[in-house]
Simulated assay, not measured.
Amino acid sequence: MEDRDKNLNSNVEPEQQEQDEKKNAQKDKPDFTPEQQEWIDKFVSHNKAQAKKEMEDYKKKVDSSIDERINQKLAEQERRAKMSAEEKAADDRKHLEDENRRLKAKIERNDRLSYGRSIADQYNVPMTMVSRLVGANDEETEANMKDFASAFNNAVQSGVDKRLAGNNQPQRGTQVDVGGDKSLDDLSLEDQTKLFQENPDLYKQLARR
């Protein structure tokens, strides 16, 4: 009997607790004018609709990507099914050779980047510029570093000479495209040098991006 009463109480208590929570929520709910409530309802409805559309678009994108991969896999299986044992072996060998070439190229690129970073300080080259100055080999990378340092130093010296000569004319506009969110890394070495000469202040702004 006691167990039955306990079960009944346990069933009633959650319901009562839920009702109390609803009452408290309503009690704490701020009062809005009809116009304010209408605006809030529209705002919430708009956000829900936008979130729903974004989820649907994302799902379509994922589904499309999955379908594309499935179709590629099926096409590959069909292509392989038509091959003889010798053709399959040759195809596997070609695939391995291509993968080895890609891996080797990646390792060589990383080695050249590592070398470029190791000599960047020597030529006062910012680390953000190293990847743009890396050449086909270490010699070409170092030559690019020297060219960059020379061009940059010349630009700096040109700016210093103009200021020492008392050239206080307002900075003119630059012909270099620096629109959008472009940073120095997005510009060629030639454009960086030109920008430094034409508009040093803008050059400094891009350098901080």
Rank of each mutant, 00 (worst) to 15 (best):
D181M: 05
Q16R: 13
Q169S: 15
E97H: 05
K60I: 09
R208Y: 05
V125R: 05
D121N: 14
A165P: 03
V176T: 05
E56W: 02
R93M: 13
R69K: 12
V44C: 01
P34D: 12
R209Y: 06
K106R: 13
V134T: 06
V156Q: 04
I119D: 04
D28F: 15
E13I: 09
N47K: 12
D201A: 15
R117V: 01
Y115C: 00
G180M: 05
V44Y: 01
P170Y: 01
D177W: 13
S10A: 10
R208A: 05
E35T: 13
A89Y: 08
G166R: 09
L202M: 12
I66D: 14
T141F: 00
S64R: 08
I107H: 02
A105K: 11
D67F: 09
Q169E: 15
L8T: 09
K204N: 03
F196W: 10
E15L: 13
Q36H: 10
K61Y: 05
D28M: 14
V125N: 01
E76D: 08
T174F: 00
F32A: 03
N124E: 12
S188D: 08
S188L: 10
N71E: 11
F152L: 06
T33N: 02
A49Y: 01
G179P: 01
H95G: 04
M83F: 09
H95E: 15
D28A: 13
K73E: 05
